[in-house]
């Protein structure tokens, strides 16, 4: 059976928020080392991968591998009903058709139990090859969210250019154009590692959706390499990460 306790429901809320705009249903695979989720969006342009290792949980036990088919909108409703500082324990039997969520207030004066019906999802898993990225940029997640929002006002496409001098985001549309440049800072809030310069074009709508994960982390890592999908990674405390992959736009 599975038993996993998050110290704060707020973290689970943030994780669900980071997933639910991009995928509606997905399988959460639980093993003794932690929880994993991998799903493509409906149009198969992007992929989200979540990894939560046992270290982050207040309590974690998983005797046998169990896959939980979740409807994320339903999970969001349940999680929303709890207070952010409640502890939450997820429990599922070995061949579960439901997931039990038990919320417990700080002083244990209030407990709330919910049973969520699980879905039988036939989900493919994709193999993500190890990639040596040509450019790796780390910046405050709030800065990235702001740039994605500002860019999407101008165009559907966002061009990302990365050189040793910095990273540039550009959008060009009917209204005009926008260019935002960031350079490596001595303060260390922006770091740019470049093996070779790269310029790629991406759908801004997806980049914007990825920034739903902003509350999970102060930092975001953006990795680019020729002819492979963009990787946008948000670390999640001691648990692990949420990663978003987005296929680049190619010339027609």
């Amino acid at each position: 059976m599975l038993e996993a306790r998050f110290g704060e429901t707020l973290l689970l809320k943030k994780i669900v928020d980071a997933l639910k705009e991009i995928i509606s249903q997905s399988t959460l695979d639980c093993t003794e080392t932690g929880m994993q989720l991998q799903s493509m969006d409906n149009s198969h342009v992007s992929l989200v991968a979540l990894s939560l290792q046992t270290e982050g949980f207040e309590k974690y036990r998983c005797d046998r591998n169990v896959s939980l088919g979740l409807d994320l909108k339903s999970l969001a409703k349940v999680v929303k009903s709890a207070s952010g500082d409640d502890a939450v324990t997820l429990t599922a039997a070995d061949k579960a058709d439901k997931l039990l969520l038990s919320f417990e207030s700080d002083n244990k004066s209030r407990t709330a139990d919910y049973e969520l019906k699980l879905l039988n999802l036939d989900q493919d898993h994709l193999g993500i090859p190890e990639t040596n990225y040509a450019c790796i940029v780390q910046m405050p997640s709030s800065e990235f969210a702001r740039i994605c929002r500002d860019m999407s006002m101008f165009s559907e496409s966002v061009v990302i250019s990365c050189t040793k001098q910095g990273i540039k985001f550009s959008a060009n549309g009917d209204m005009g154009s926008a260019n935002i440049k960031l350079s490596d800072t001595s303060k260390g809030d922006i770091t740019i590692d470049v093996d070779e310069p790269i310029t790629q074009s991406f759908a801004g709508r997806y980049l914007n959706t990825f920034t739903r994960a902003t509350p999970l982390s102060d930092r975001v890592k953006i990795c680019l390499a020729p002819d492979v999908p963009l990787l946008v990674e948000y670390p999640i405390e001691d648990y692990g990460y949420i990663r978003y992959y987005l296929a680049p736009k190619v010339d027609e």
Partner: peptide
Amino acid sequence: MQQSITSYFKQK
């Protein structure tokens, strides 16, 4: 043109 992610990552 937007490529599918499955053209980069293959099914296991």
